[in-house]
């Protein structure tokens, strides 16, 4: 079959399995758990931002809502984790649908402002509804994920759960992109008028992908809250929304691996740079700036150019034949395998 096309995915599955068996350092496992959680959220945002071309600065709020609903259901009402998680994702889908209906009529900066306002409303509500959400003090003592006799009470087990969820969603996302609706999404990124003329339900398509990406964020929020066991309104504030967008852009918009690479980069880099003590922020900012200047298409594009250049040299083909390298491409290459 398509073994060759599936090699990266197979390698990912193998390295997750190997990591689960070999890595025992809780610090690294924790970092990998956070990377997995952020990667799930950014994969959803990438669908919206990279594939459908719709910006959202309110996805942190969906993350926070998923986290809070699950936290409230398990701590106040003693609901089992799986039921709480399912309900949280379903509720966030409903909210995203209600928000998306008016918001997605907006375009460009206005859509960004609209979603930003939504995020801020959720943030204020979480702070003010003290009876329900605990207000600024948050909710503590949230139970760890469990299903029947199986409880994800160790870092290694939680790592496995997060990454299994990621891989399942990865396959799902890939299938969506390679299907008819996926191509419709990419068409409306190129030109909404042209997409409409070809018979694509533009408004319906946008709403569907908005709700879907919110569901990813909510699921990430659920995984976050049952791992950290504490949640405060800070969990999904505006800074987190912006961080998610940064992850997508740094990783590669409109590229399946983009979300994962961006999440890994923005989580690992600050940790590594802490060795430089006072200069870490300077170096971190410098790296991000350099990436924007020299790799506007993100890590995936940068790596594609690098491997393309290497291959070109090896096969002694003219450098001009390198593919996927031009930064001025009006429509970013959206590749998915």
């Amino acid at each position: 079959m398509h073994v060759r096309k599936n090699i990266p995915l197979i390698l990912l599955v193998a390295s997750v399995a190997a990591a689960a068996l070999l890595i025992t350092d809780p610090y690294i496992l924790t970092m990998l758990i956070f990377i997995g959680i952020y990667a799930i959220a950014t994969m959803g945002l990438n669908l919206l931002l990279g594939f459908a071309g719709q910006i959202s600065l309110g996805h942190g709020a969906f993350f926070a809502l998923g986290a809070y609903v699950s936290a409230i259901l398990t701590t106040r009402f003693g609901a089992p984790c799986t039921a709480a998680a399912a309900l949280a994702v379903a509720l966030v889908c409903a909210i995203a649908w209600a928000v998306g209906l008016p918001c997605l009529r907006l375009k460009g900066h206005y859509l960004a402002m609209g979603t930003l306002a939504f995020g801020e409303i959720i943030h204020i509500t979480l702070n003010a509804e003290v009876e329900l959400t605990g207000g600024p003090s948050g909710i503590a003592g949230i139970p760890v994920l469990s299903l029947g006799p199986f409880s994800a009470d160790s870092d290694a087990r939680y790592f496995l759960i997060v990454w299994c969820v990621f891989i399942a969603l990865f396959v799902l996302t890939r299938n969506i992109i390679n299907s008819r609706p996926g191509r419709a999404l990419q068409a409306l990124h190129g030109s909404e008028q042209a997409a409409g003329a070809m018979g694509i339900d533009v408004a319906g398509m946008k709403l569907t992908v908005f709700v879907l990406s919110a569901a990813y964020a909510a699921l990430a929020g659920v995984l976050y809250v049952h791992f950290v066991a504490f949640v405060s309104p800070q969990a999904g504030d505006i800074m987190f929304s912006i961080k998610m967008v940064t992850m997508v852009v740094a990783g590669g918009m409109g590229h399946l691996w983009g979300g994962l690479l961006g999440a890994a980069l923005l989580t690992v880099l600050p940790e590594m740079l802490s060795y430089f003590e006072d200069y870490d922020m300077l170096i971190y900012g410098g790296i991000l700036l350099a990436m924007v200047m020299f790799m506007p298409g993100g890590l995936t594009q940068g790596l594609a150019r690098l491997s393309g250049a290497l291959r070109a040299r090896r096969t002694a083909v003219r450098p001009g034949a390198v593919t996927g390298g031009r930064t001025e491409d009006p429509v970013p290459r959206r590749t998915a395998q």
Binding site: I7, P8, L11, L12, S15, W257, L260, L261, A264, T300, L303, A304, L306, S307, G308, G324, Q337
Partner: peptide, 9 residues
């Protein structure tokens, strides 16, 4: 290229 991503990871 995908291969490279994975190798880096």
């Amino acid at each position: 290229m995908k291969k490279l991503c994975t190798v880096i990871m």
